[in-house]
């Protein structure tokens, strides 16, 4: 039997040995119960790490982290500048629009197109993992996201407009969970629908709003509120086409 040192025992536990070395270690462990007990405990440690911390991989990704991963890029900086001015416009626009409208929900609504555009530019270029759950599991996707948002959601059908559902993912932002559905056309263009609960808008006259439009650094965003839920459709495509998609989403969701 080959003499086995501690370093090889660790490498065995960590799966870093080839087949021959592994057999040597196993032969050694069969005759050395103390080493076998250590190895079992070390393996159990690694398993416990995975059991305890792997769920973090599936937690909704906070928008703050997405922002941090984009902040310094020139397009993102432009996006934020534009977003800031859009937010100001939206707030002042609303101020004249509703009397007695408090600022808190207004700010949330104003932030939505910016957050939606950010989530759009972050995930649409992804080649490998644009979505967390793909459209093959559409039922599961919708059930899962509905559960996390605490409200029954619908993934609108854009096939009449030439876009198919790719899938969706869960994010967090605006103080709560956010669902993002992604669609793709035959020529690989992508649009995303960003959905979150608009807390604070409940019971107000302005609970439901008509369409609003924002232009965020080349991204067209149409957004609206329907029964406490905020929706924002984002895409880097022509405004007229986006309008058609947004109309379709609005009709289907409002039903």
């Amino acid at each position: 039997m080959k003499q086995i040192n501690e370093e090889q025992l660790h490498a065995y536990v960590d799966g870093l040995l080839d087949d021959g070395q592994r057999l040597d270690v196993e032969a050694w462990l069969a005759g050395h119960p103390d080493d076998a007990a250590r190895v079992r405990d070390w393996q159990a440690q690694n398993q416990a790490f995975h059991a305890a911390f792997d769920p973090v991989l599936n937690e909704p990704m906070p928008l703050e982290l997405l922002r941090a991963s984009r902040r310094q890029t020139a397009p993102a900086r432009r996006l934020w500048r534009v977003a800031a001015s859009v937010a100001v416009l939206a707030v002042t626009g609303l101020a004249g629009y509703g009397i007695g409208l408090r600022s808190a929900p207004t700010e949330l609504i104003a932030r939505m197109p910016r957050d939606a555009a950010l989530a759009h530019v972050v995930f649409t270029p992804e080649q490998r993992h644009p979505v967390e759950v793909d459209a093959a599991h559409a039922d599961h996707l919708v059930t899962w996201l509905s559960k996390r948002l605490g409200s029954p959601l619908k993934a609108p059908d854009f096939s009449a407009q030439g876009f198919e559902l790719l899938g969706g993912r869960l994010l967090s932002g605006g103080g709560g969970p956010v669902a993002q559905f992604m669609y793709q056309s035959a020529d690989q263009r992508r649009v995303t629908l960003y959905v979150r609960r608009e807390a604070g808008s409940k019971g107000r006259d302005n609970t439901d709003t008509s369409f609003r439009h924002a232009h965020e650094n080349g991204i067209e965003v149409f957004y609206w509120i329907d029964q406490d839920m905020g929706y924002a459709l984002s895409g880097g495509i022509a405004r007229a086409e986006m309008q058609l998609l947004a109309d379709a989403a609005y009709r289907q969701i409002g039903r």
Binding site: V56, L57, N58, E59, M61, L65, L66, S69, R70, T73, P75, V121, V122, F123, T124, P125, E126, Q127, R128, H129, Q188, R189, R190, N217, G218, I219, G236, I237
Partner: peptide, 23 residues
């Protein structure tokens, strides 16, 4: 997609890859 084209190339842009490593 033209506005994000420059970040849409996985080999050229490690930026979009950053996202992938966040989890």
């Amino acid at each position: 997609m033209s506005p994000s084209r420059e970040t849409g190339e996985p080999r050229v842009s490690p930026r979009s890859d950053l996202i992938e490593h966040i989890p």
